[in-house]
Computed example of a mutant assay.
Amino acid sequence: MGLIVNLISIFVGLVALPVALVGLVPFFGLANYLAIPLAIVGAAIGMLSGYRSGRNFNLFVLVVAVIRLILGGGLL
């Protein structure tokens, strides 16, 4: 059961990562506002499994999106 939940978490992260990467391009930073909730959901799902890889991957995507928004002046 834990492996399936971890795979779902990784899949959510794989959906959020391209959105966050598009948000790195100037004038497309608003895409990070979509990537952040996706990564949070993926990290929450990853916490339900006994594995760390899905959670850590989603936390990485979350950090990339948040840092981009902070540098662009869109968060905080």
Rank of each mutant, 00 (worst) to 15 (best):
L34C: 11
V63L: 14
L38Y: 09
R68G: 10
L69W: 02
I10G: 07
V25E: 02
R55T: 14
Y51P: 05
V66I: 13
G46W: 07
V12W: 07
L34D: 06
N6A: 01
N6V: 01
A20R: 00
N56Q: 07
L69I: 08
G23H: 01
G13M: 04
S53L: 14
G23N: 00
N58K: 05
L38P: 15
V61A: 03
F28Y: 12
G72C: 11
I8P: 00
G42C: 06
I8C: 10
I36D: 02
N56T: 02
F27K: 11
S53W: 11
I40L: 15
V25A: 10
N32M: 08
V12Q: 02
I67N: 02
A39M: 10
G2Q: 02
I4Y: 09
G13F: 10
A44K: 06
M1G: 14
G54L: 03
A35V: 04
F27R: 10
G46R: 06
I4T: 09
G50E: 12
G73M: 14
L3V: 15
I70Y: 15
A16Y: 10
L24Y: 03
V19T: 07
S49V: 10
Y33G: 13
F60G: 07
Y33I: 15
A35D: 04
G29D: 09
L75H: 07
P18K: 00
I70E: 10
G73V: 15
Y51W: 15
F60D: 00
A65I: 07
M47W: 11
L7M: 13
L7N: 10
A31H: 05
I45K: 01
A44T: 12
P18I: 04
V66L: 15
L14E: 04
V41C: 14
G74T: 07
G23I: 08
N6K: 00
A16R: 00
P37Q: 00
L75T: 02
L34S: 09
G29F: 12
G73H: 11
I10C: 08
R52F: 15
S53K: 03
G13Y: 08
P37M: 03
R68I: 11
G73W: 14
V66S: 12
F11A: 12
V15Y: 09
L62Y: 12
L75Q: 05
G74N: 12
A16Q: 02
L30H: 09
L24D: 01
A16G: 05
N58V: 08
I8K: 08
F11K: 00
A35Y: 06
L59M: 13
G42W: 08
N32Y: 11
S49R: 04
R52C: 12
N6Y: 03
I8D: 03
P26R: 11
M1T: 11
L69M: 11
